[in-house]
């Protein structure tokens, strides 16, 4: 699907084997209503794909399912979930663990809690390189300093000795991105990487991610509920609602001409697009949506 979008907009690279290929994926918790239902999604090398939707639409479940980070009550079924050519559906835990980091590396929503409060950042970043048993301590340190420099952290050598609580959220998110880069992953999964940050920090982090993408050509799966973030960085976007992808296309196409009523409703709620002086904030009318879009029936 979406073959016409299957090229890298920046480098113009030809079609290649997708980094991530999700086919008909369904996730349910403890046998309840599925959080994710029949989702298809592909991310090709060097491509930045956004998944947008409101809270509870299933976008985070989808992102966490890739590396099997969901709680044990989650049941994942479907056709396939291929990461770097390996199908992870029903694969042994060992296979999944081997792809955590090198296959796909994650950046989480809240950088303030993403690191252990009791260990220095240097200690934690070094522990992430546990797979490399041949490199000496100094070699690892050099590699860590290199990525910290790459993400624009001032005075990286001194930061290695600091504890997470001594840095700001924006700084920590830079460290989290550096940690992901340390793995040299094929895919970067960013789960709302700017939601916990203020606007200035958000702009800085997005700028950084754009730079990295241009430099390293890493594929990115960007999860967000914020249209601005998606517009800023993505090539393609998938709109999720009630566990399904209801619309998918290039960012230009979707932003210029949203087709699905939910996408339209989501745009209507975008703060930067709302006219000033209105007396009521727009809300998404789920009842109306269910009437208009039959696909939603029974989904919630």
């Amino acid at each position: 699907m979406n073959l016409e979008f299957g090229f890298n907009r920046v480098t113009g690279a030809a079609l290649a084997e997708p980094v991530l290929d999700i086919g008909d994926l369904t996730i349910s918790y403890g046998g309840g209503t599925p959080a994710v239902q029949g989702v298809h999604l592909t991310v090709r090398p060097g491509e930045v794909v956004g998944v947008i939707g409101e809270s509870g639409s299933g976008k985070t479940s989808l992102a966490h399912a890739v590396l099997r980070l969901l709680p044990q009550s989650a049941v994942i079924t479907g056709q396939h979930l291929s990461l770097c050519g390996t199908d992870l559906l029903g694969a042994p835990d060992k296979t999944v663990a081997s792809l955590r980091g090198p296959g796909a590396a994650m950046i989480f929503q809240n950088p303030m809690t993403a690191f252990s409060p009791l260990h220095t950042l240097g200690h934690q970043l070094t522990d992430l390189l546990w797979r490399d048993r041949t490199a000496s301590k100094e070699e690892k340190r050099e590699r860590i300093l290199a990525v910290l420099k790459q993400v624009g952290l001032p005075d990286p050598a001194a930061r290695l000795e600091t504890y997470p609580f001594q840095l700001s959220g924006g700084m920590l998110q830079r460290v989290a991105i550096a940690a992901a880069l340390l793995m040299r992953p094929s895919l970067l999964i960013a789960d709302e990487p700017t939601t916990a940050l203020d606007v200035t920090m958000e702009a800085q982090i997005l700028h950084l991610m754009r730079e990295l993408r241009a430099e390293s050509g890493v594929a990115i799966l960007m999860i967000s509920h914020h249209l601005g973030v998606i517009a800023e960085i993505c090539d393609r976007v998938a709109v999720m609602y009630a566990g399904r992808i209801v619309e998918e296309g290039t960012v230009e196409a979707i932003f210029a001409d949203p087709r699905h009523p939910y996408t339209k409703a989501l745009f209507a709620c975008e703060l930067s697009l709302i006219e000033t002086g209105i007396s009521r904030m727009p809300v998404i009318d789920h009842e109306a949506l269910r009437r208009i879009a039959p696909v939603m029936r029974g989904a919630q």
Binding site: L69, L99, G101, A105, N110, T113, S116, P117, D127
Partner: peptide, 25 residues
């Protein structure tokens, strides 16, 4: 804790997470 999830997402072995991180906390 969220940091345990971070460590897991980087494939850090469970034993290491338990004895190096969680036990201290």
């Amino acid at each position: 804790e969220a940091y345990v999830r971070t460590l897991r997402s980087f494939g850090v072995p469970e034993r290491k997470i338990i004895y190096r991180y969680a036990l201290k906390q």
